[in-house]
Design a protein around this nucleic acid. Structure first.
Lengths: 110, 110
DNA sequence: TTATTTATTCTATAAAGTATAACAAATTAA
DNA sequence: TTAATTTGTTATACTTTATAGAATAAATAA
């Protein structure tokens, strides 16, 4: 267990959980990955990753209430922990720092 | 072969190769990972990653000239390709975009 | 011609990422 | 009251990435 860094998909999902707030559950994360990060993964991939993140203490989960509208199982809602937020910030800081030292990348932007 | 995204260490090494320019070779990359990214990996880990990046077309390599000062084998110098630069920019754009949508992370900075 | 130094390569394993299929629970309708 | 439908999570198996440690190689110096 490394604990001082996370994988690439782990980072994206952590960010999306922050964005989705109360609506951060498996299928919604998968949809957001596609729409916000152009990343098409199966639902199994999402759940595998959130399980890993939870066992590392970066997120926690609780079962949501019964569905409002039509049928369906209850949602497992995820939220980020303090250490999850902390590792996201570290990851960002490292990259921002590197990017700033590379004029090449800053200039040639889309 | 995914081709539309890279691993976390792959991204860091890609960035460091850009930074190191003519001095981008195994041991220097390892040193930079430690100093610039707080990431302590063995030299074997670095070479495994650069080999992967090269086979994916994100970097290319050539053998440097004989060492200037004391003994030692010749360096394998890496440089980034157009597609390597492109994938770095995509990766950055996705994350910058997400971060901007999360006020929580922007405020609570170190 | 052997030591020393600086580097890369090889090999084996753990962790992260991924897809597919199976299962479960809630609602709706028969 | 039970079968169908919907929405969701879990289980399993496999590939790719990440990693360490040891072996090897090539250059210079003694």
């Amino acid at each position: 267990m490394s604990k001082d860094h996370i994988g690439e998909l782990e980072e994206l999902i952590l960010l999306l959980i922050l964005m989705l707030k109360e609506e951060a559950y498996g299928l919604a994360i998968r949809k957001a990955l596609k729409e916000q990060a152009n990343r098409n993964v199966t639902i199994g991939a999402v759940h595998g990753t959130v399980n890993r993140l939870e066992s590392k203490g970066f997120i926690e989960s609780s079962m949501g209430g019964a569905t409002e509208e039509r049928g369906g199982r209850r949602k497992r809602i995820f939220s980020i922990t303090a250490s999850g937020k902390s590792i996201l910030q570290k990851s960002r800081d490292v990259k921002v720092n590197l990017w700033q030292q590379i004029p090449e990348l800053s200039i040639e932007k889309a």
